[in-house]
Structures are given as structure tokens and as C-alpha cells.
């Protein structure tokens, strides 16, 4: 499907180079930009989870914000309660999210289109209310997620001015690159091929010996694992997890990011991540020019996002990418 294929070794090298460049760059940009860079990385992972789910496996979820919350709560809980080291806490959040995704995926494999969208939407509304039910989840107040100062060796490596935000940036970028690298490899493996086959023509794929339903469940599980990874990092950036930190609008935003970037290609997640951070930023500065009205500043980002979403669906179903792709194989 892709016109350009990199060998696994070149791909790994490419990710290493990107990582090295980004980490070097972090020394030369301001605090705010560093934080935004970390946000882009987190959104990238979240959008990649939707791209994998929608673009490759043909399913949809409007509830991935809730899955992110599961990851965030899992990481924060294990970090605070059982004093897991940060990396293990992150992994724990991912495992909890993946398990939840597996359960949901078993049901999701039997639903399609609007049914799945509505069901996951109901999940996104319903799941955060669990936090009120269990004392250990902290109710409305949520849980703190403070991993403390960057470790000594990092500070020594970078010199004196190593800030918290820069540390978050490093973590997010490294995690995002490792995750995207892993997913790229997965999508180029037989699993990825089977997902695409099942998506393009379920009957033909089944005849070719592919278990389409099992593939869908697996895709939902992997996608949820990615989303909860993003959620755990999201909680890290916020410093806490609360039921309201993962609103419906977050679920919508990552779907929007994925569609704007084009769901057909994982590389789109980078574009999507940048767009999600850039639109509020740009409309913020536009609002200042328009006279700083409260109404405008609160609604311009939403207006821009939803109009571009509609325009993309109508006129550029492959997303905002410049490179032309080969025509998709028609399904019927």
C-alpha cells in the first residue's frame, strides 16, 4: 500500500536520528515550547492509536479518552500506592488499558460503524464516574502523579539548567518514538497485513484463512495499549489524574487529529499531534488580534477544528497530506 518501503534497519536508524535531533533541539527552545513539544508527543501516541484502529482495522472509537484515563489512573495508582518505579508504573498503566481494550474489543468486533461509535461514546461518558465509586481512585479530586525531579545523571549530562518540563519532554519524545517504531514494525508484519485485508474485504480475508474477528480484537487491544500509554504520559504532564481531565472533548480531539492527518498512514500521527497543539495556539494569537473577546477565545479553536474536520471528510479523505497516494482499492 505504501509507495515507499524502508528496511527495518533503516527505519530503526531513522527513529534514532529523529530522537537525537529532537533531544538536542530541546536545549535551545523555551520552557513553553518544550512543554508543547511534550504535548505533541503525547497526542502523537494517542492519534497513532486511532489511526491503527480506524485506518488499519476499520473500527472506530469515540471513547479513547476514557481508555487514556484508564492508563493514567493505572500509572498514577501503581506509582503512589505500590511505589512502582516510574517506568514500571507506565507499563502497568499500559497493561491495565490493554486488558480493558481486550474486553471492549471482544464486544467491538461484533459491532460496526455507528453502533460502535455510539457504544464507545457511552463508555466515554460512563467510565469516568467509576472514580467516584472507589475511595482508592480519589473521587472528584483524583490522584496526584508527581514523579519528582529529573534523576541526577540526566542533570549532570545536560548541565545545570535541566528543568522539569525538559525532563517531561525527554520522556515523552523517547516513549513516543519507541512506541511508534514498534507500531510501524507491527503494521509491516503479517498482523498489519491481516488487519488491512480484513478491513478491505472481510469475506475475502476470511477465505484466505485470516481470522478477521480475532484480528479486530487484537487491533482494539493494541490500540488501547497505545491510548493508555498516551494517557499515562498525559497524566504525567498534568501532574495529576482526575475524572474531568479526560473529557469527551479529548476523545473527539484525537479522532479529529487522526482524521485531519489521514487515517491511512501512521506517519500522519506526527501531523495530527502538531495540529492539535497548534490550532489552540494559533487561534489564541488570532484572538488577540480580534480584540481578546472571551467568546471568541473560547470557541475559535473548536470552530477551526470542526470546520477543518468537515472539509477533510468531504474533500480530502486521505487527510491533509501533500504527497499523493495511490488510489485506494475499492471495497465493493
Amino acid at each position: 500500500m505504501r509507495s515507499r518501503h524502508l528496511s527495518p534497519r533503516t527505519r530503526a536508524l531513522l527513529f534514532l536520528v529523529i530522537g537525537a535531533v529532537l533531544l538536542t533541539v530541546s536545549g535551545f527552545i523555551g520552557e513553553l515550547r518544550t512543554y508543547q513539544g511534550a504535548q505533541v508527543a503525547v497526542y502523537m501516541i494517542a492519534i497513532a492509536s486511532i489511526i491503527l484502529l480506524t485506518g488499519y482495522s476499520g473500527q472506530i472509537s469515540l471513547g479513547h479518552g476514557a481508555v487514556m484515563a484508564v492508563g493514567g489512573y493505572g500509572a498514577a495508582l501503581s506509582f503512589n500506592l505500590w511505589h512502582f518505579p516510574f517506568a514500571i508504573a507506565l507499563l502497568f498503566g499500559v497493561l491495565v488499558g490493554a486488558f480493558g481494550g481486550f474486553v471492549l474489543g471482544v464486544a467491538a468486533a461484533r459491532l460496526s460503524g455507528p453502533y460502535l461509535a455510539g457504544t464507545t461514546l457511552a463508555l466515554a461518558v460512563g467510565l469516568p464516574t467509576i472514580a467516584d465509586q472507589f475511595h482508592v481512585l480519589g473521587g472528584e479530586q483524583g490522584l496526584n502523579f508527581d514523579i519528582g525531579d529529573p534523576p541526577r545523571w540526566v542533570v549532570r549530562l545536560e548541565g545545570g539548567d535541566f528543568t522539569q518540563y525538559k525532563w517531561f519532554f525527554w520522556i515523552s519524545i523517547v516513549v513516543a518514538l519507541v512506541a511508534l517504531w514498534g507500531i510501524t514494525n507491527l503494521l509491516h508484519s503479517s498482523y498489519g497485513r491481516n488487519w488491512r485485508a480484513g478491513r478491505n474485504n472481510a469475506v475475502a480475508a476470511g477465505l484466505a484463512g485470516i481470522n478477521v474477528a480475532r484480528g479486530k480484537v487484537l487491533a482494539f487491544t493494541v490500540s488501547s495499549a497505545l491510548a493508555s500509554l498516551a494517557g499515562a504520559l498525559f497524566a504525567l504532564l498534568l501532574g495529576l489524574v482526575t475524572p474531568t481531565a479526560f473529557p469527551l472533548s479529548l476523545s473527539f480531539a484525537i479522532v479529529t487529529g487522526a482524521v485531519l492527518a489521514g487515517v491511512g498512514n501512521l506517519a500522519g500521527s506526527i501531523v495530527g499531534g502538531v495540529v492539535l497543539v497548534a490550532i489552540p495556539e494559533l487561534s489564541g494569537s488570532l484572538t488577540t488580534h480580534l480584540g481578546n473577546s472571551q467568546k471568541v477565545s473560547a470557541n475559535l479553536p473548536g470552530l477551526v477544528m470542526s470546520s477543518s474536520l468537515i472539509l477533510v471528510v468531504l474533500f480530502m479523505p486521505n487527510g491533509l497530506r501533500i504527497r499523493k497516494f495511490k488510489k485506494q482499492v475499492k471495497t465493493q
Binding site: L62, G302, M305, L309, V313
Partner: peptide, 19 residues
């Protein structure tokens, strides 16, 4: 047709909701 044909109505009406 295209990569999001199946979910296009969902996405488009969501966009309309936001709009």
C-alpha cells in the same frame, strides 16, 4: 469510497456537532 468511507457519516456529524 476511500479510507474513511465507512465512518465518514460519524466523523462528519461529529464535526457538525462541534461546529
Amino acid at each position: 469510497s476511500g479510507p474513511i468511507a465507512e465512518i465518514a457519516p460519524v466523523i462528519a456529524t461529529l464535526g457538525l456537532l462541534g461546529l
